[in-house]
Write a protein that binds this DNA or RNA. Structure first.
Lengths: 314, 314
DNA sequence: GGGGTTGTTTTGTCCTAGACAAATATTGTC
DNA sequence: GACAATATTTGTCTAGGACAAAACAACCCC
């Protein structure tokens, strides 16, 4: 029961929506016959909502290693089946959690129950503590919500509501942590094109509970500005968050560029779901695919740094 | 004092770095003869770091209202002179804010003093209360910071830091307000293309202190999803925030589209700095250019609504 | 002089279609 | 089964043409 039909989207909107470049969209159309957009009076492409949805699904599956040739030819049902198979596979390796937390979150989300969500998430945060909340609840819940959306089980607006509430809750949690003063001094942000703030906040939380001195610049800071800010602020580490929405190759290029702009004494820590699936990595950048690795990494840094400082002093 | 020699950049890297699209870069080269990149063995453009730097400067001056035609023809020295002239000119017209609140914020921002900012803003929030904090401090401060950035007085990274801290503080303030239960029931979000979350949070705060029942979907919700969510949630009002970054025509089109999708019983309140300068407005949408108008609008709604309810009951 | 309408220039984005290198799959060989 | 050589797939670049939206300029009217 749809109140109205979604408007057809221009190619630039589809690029934003799916993360597939305009060039790629045109090339698929040329090679595989899909997508097959309508044309407006001016001969420009207009993508029906249905095709945009299918493209998003394809884009997600590409990140799991499947090839375009197979995917673009398949019907929507086959794609959904593939998505479910991929999910089942990744669910095996995921830690099994008390399902009550997840199920309740889902139920409240479906009902658009903002107050209920707030109470529920806040209670979970208080019960688990900030660190366990992030690692054991938020991280798997994010994956679950993303999958549920791509299978059409929840609406975009409900995914938005989830993100908004979770962000709110993480900020509440962060507000209760006394600002850290210990080294390393970490500057947090994301590179241009990475819009997901939740990943950044999760990292921030995990660092804050270790007493690390953090400065967050929010999302989408250009490499030049990161370098300049790190220099002026005297940061020891630049921490960056990467969601699966970003193309690995693109992300690696930006990282290498940033690496060249920063002095060698400043470390780069690149975290986020993107690195769980990406093989190729570059030197002089620390890749962190799971947040629970952070405490060990911080401890290691502190040990090294203490050593360095002694050496410098001596 | 660069840490390393920066290599010539490919066109995709220049796009990221400057924010100018590939098409635009190629078009400028065709039309104005600048930039004039080298070519690699394969005939692809390679931009020397020097030209990339100049492009960055041009991109910044464009944001101040200067036109490409003039800028791309000029030498680097002329561009810098222009930047300084633009800065001097806007410094004259800038309102002089003698308040200690503003000056302290600026000073802490310049020092990248995250902890100091947090303490300072939190104190301001506690002293003024959420409503006055938003209307008397955040709103003018936003304008000031935007101006300071476009004049080159603060770096992008410092504007990012400001936004991040203010957002954090507003969320802290919102977290302390007991969830509203009174009508109207407002669903808050922004339309696609509008990325600024701060405006939305400011509106959220002003509504929350009036005891209004709010649900925020965060930013960039497509019109169809807003309509669907409003229907399922039974919202009385859809509240949207528009920054000056959006093109008025585009914004009005999207608003009209949304208006057509929502039942007439659901009001649309469109707020934000965009409407202070835009004449053209459309019927059946309430435009709110300043946040201090909100209490009166809510009171008016409640009176009307009470009337309607009585009429329905009788 | 301010405010609105009209015409002109500027400017960004989209189009087609060809080319090629990097990434990935497949085959052949030990 | 491991490794090298070859074939296919795939994304991104190139060139120039077209056009509509935005910005600017000129004009008229109050």
């Amino acid at each position: 029961m749809q109140p109205a039909e979604l408007p057809d989207a221009a190619i630039s909107a589809v690029e934003r929506e799916t993360g597939l470049s305009k060039d790629t969209l045109r090339m698929w159309e040329r090679r595989y016959g899909f997508p097959s957009p309508l044309r407006d009076a001016n001969g420009e492409r207009l993508y029906p909502a249905e095709q945009v949805h299918k493209l998003r699904l394809i884009s997600r599956l590409l990140d799991r290693g499947l090839r375009p040739r197979q995917l673009v030819g398949e019907a929507l049902e086959q794609l959904i089946a593939r998505a479910e198979a991929a999910e089942a596979k990744s669910a095996e390796s995921a830690p099994v959690l008390e399902s009550a937390l997840f199920e309740t979150t889902l139920r409240l989300l479906r009902a658009y129950d903002e107050t209920g969500l707030r109470v529920h998430l806040s209670a979970a945060l208080q019960r688990l503590g900030l660190q366990r909340f992030v690692i054991e609840f938020v991280a798997p819940m994010n994956r679950w919500v993303g999958d549920a959306w791509s299978r059409g089980q929840i609406a975009i607006s409900q995914e938005h509501l989830y993100t908004e509430q979770m962000e709110h809750q993480l900020r509440q949690g962060l507000g209760a942590v006394y600002p850290g003063t210990h080294r390393p001094s970490v500057m947090l942000t994301t590179l241009p094109g990475e819009e997901h703030q939740l990943g950044l906040l999760m990292a921030h939380a995990c660092l804050a509970v270790e007493g690390v001195r953090c400065v967050s610049l929010g999302i989408q800071t250009p490499a030049w500005d990161i370098a300049e800010a790190a220099r002026q602020h005297g940061a020891d580490v630049v921490g960056l968050s990467f969601s699966e929405a970003l193309r690995p190759k693109h992300a690696l290029e930006m990282l290498q560029d940033l690496r060249a702009r920063l002095p060698a004494s400043v470390e780069i820590w690149a975290g986020g779901a993107l690195w769980a699936r990406t093989r190729r990595q570059i030197g002089a950048v620390r890749f962190i695919s799971r947040l629970d690795q952070l405490p060990a990494i911080i401890a290691e840094y502190r040990e090294h740094r203490a050593h360095d400082t002694r050496a410098e002093a001596g």
